[in-house]
């Protein structure tokens, strides 16, 4: 169900680069797509709340819960960025800058969390094996 909902916009996300950078209309995202994306977003939101509710009832490893929540949030972000924010049909430069924020975040997170994992945090826990 979930997949079929956002498959349609997902399919459209093939590799069709805009041939030129000069900011002319690069193609359009139809109103129907907006509604489909919105449907997918709502569905994902109920999925994430549902997963949370399920965690309260069934014992699920905590890490798994976090991964599920973050995966859903990232998928929602991807949908919003690609379609609502037109990155799919934007110039290559805008696409690059959208990706740059991800690179910046990765540098921040990987290095600092890496230090915390290696250092042992909080101190009484000791470093990761």
């Amino acid at each position: 169900m979930a997949t079929s909902k956002h498959d349609t916009p997902g399919d459209a996300h093939g590799h069709q680069e805009p041939a030129h950078y000069d900011g002319h209309a690069h193609g359009h995202i139809s109103v129907a797509t907006y509604y489909r994306v919105f449907g997918a977003l709502m569905l994902l939101m109920f999925l994430t709340v549902g997963a949370w509710w399920l965690e309260g009832v069934v014992a699920i490893p905590r890490l798994l819960g976090v991964i599920v929540a973050l995966t859903i949030a990232s998928t929602k972000t991807l949908l919003i960025v690609l379609f609502f924010m037109h990155i799919k049909v934007s110039s290559r430069m805008s696409q690059l800058y959208a990706a740059a924020s991800l690179v910046g975040l990765l540098m921040l997170f990987i290095v600092i969390m890496g230090d915390y994992f290696a250092r042992g945090w909080p101190p009484q826990l000791g470093p990761l094996p």
């Binding site: 000069d22 900011g23 934007s90 805008s94 800058y97 921040l108 997170f109």
Partner: peptide
């Protein structure tokens, strides 16, 4: 050209916003 500048400028600004919230998320 003006439109491309505005859009790219907004995206570069959004990068700064992402990094701003990035500190809190970290």
């Amino acid at each position: 050209q003006q439109k491309e500048a505005a859009t790219l400028g907004m995206w570069a600004f959004l990068v700064t916003e992402v990094m701003l919230f990035g500190g809190i998320f970290l």
